[in-house]
Amino acid sequence: MIRKIVFKIRVWTTILIPFILILLPADFFDRGETVCLSRLLAGIECYACGLTRATMHFIHFEFSTAWSYNKLVFIVVPMLFPLWVKAFYELNGKTLPGIWGKLT
C-alpha cells in the first residue's frame, strides 16, 4: 500500500514540476544566497553551480542567459525529457516502447 502511494507521488511530482516551473518567471531563482556546499565551504564552484537558474532560463527559451549560467544545461534538460515521458507511461501502467523503455 505504501509503495503504491510513494509511486503515485513520485510520478505526479515528475509530471507537475515542469508545468510549475514554466509558470514561474524565468528569473525566479536568480536572486538569493547560494545553497551549494562546495561554494559555501570551500569557495569553489562545482559543475552543477547555476544549473537550476540555467534550467529556468532554458525552459523559458532564454538560451544565451542559460548558457551564461551553466553550459551543461544543454545536455541535462534534453536528458530529462525521456524521464518526463516515462512518468506519463507509468501513470497508465505501461512501459516506454523500444529502446527508450530499456534505457530509462
Score class of each variant (00 low, 15 high):
M1S: 07
M1K: 05
I2D: 07
I2E: 10
I2S: 01
R3Y: 13
K4S: 07
K4H: 04
I5G: 00
I5V: 15
V6R: 07
F7V: 05
F7K: 14
I9Y: 09
R10I: 15
R10W: 12
R10L: 15
V11W: 03
V11A: 11
W12I: 12
W12H: 09
T13H: 07
T13D: 07
T13W: 14
T14W: 09
L16T: 12
I17N: 10
F19I: 09
F19V: 07
F19W: 14
F19H: 13
I20Y: 06
L21H: 11
L21C: 15
L21I: 12
I22M: 14
L23M: 12
P25Y: 03
P25K: 07
P25W: 08
P25L: 03
A26M: 06
A26V: 06
A26S: 14
A26C: 05
D27P: 01
D27Y: 02
F28H: 04
F28Q: 01
F28D: 00
F29L: 09
F29G: 05
D30V: 02
R31T: 10
R31P: 00
G32H: 02
G32F: 01
V35Y: 05
C36T: 03
C36N: 15
C36K: 03
C36F: 04
L37I: 12
L40Q: 07
L40H: 01
L41F: 09
L41Y: 03
A42L: 14
I44K: 11
I44E: 11
E45N: 06
C46S: 05
Y47R: 03
Y47L: 13
A48M: 13
A48S: 15
C49N: 10
G50W: 04
G50M: 02
L51Q: 08
T52E: 08
R53E: 06
R53T: 04
T55P: 02
M56A: 04
M56W: 08
M56G: 01
H57E: 06
H57D: 07
H57Y: 14
F58L: 05
F58C: 01
I59A: 06
I59D: 04
H60R: 06
F61C: 10
F61P: 01
F61K: 05
F61Y: 12
E62L: 06
E62F: 04
F63A: 10
F63Q: 04
S64Q: 14
S64Y: 07
T65S: 11
T65H: 08
T65K: 14
A66N: 04
A66C: 01
W67I: 00
W67Y: 12
Y69W: 13
Y69M: 04
N70Q: 08
K71I: 06
K71L: 13
L72A: 12
V73D: 00
F74C: 00
I75A: 06
I75M: 06
I75S: 07
V77R: 00
P78H: 04
P78G: 10
P78W: 03
M79D: 00
L80Y: 08
F81W: 13
F81D: 02
F81A: 14
P82F: 12
W84P: 03
K86I: 01
K86W: 10
A87M: 05
A87K: 05
F88H: 13
F88E: 01
Y89V: 02
E90W: 11
L91I: 00
L91D: 01
L91V: 02
G93K: 05
T95H: 03
T95W: 01
G98P: 03
I99M: 15
W100I: 12
G101D: 06
G101T: 08
G101H: 11
K102F: 11
K102T: 08
K102V: 04
L103D: 10
T104V: 15
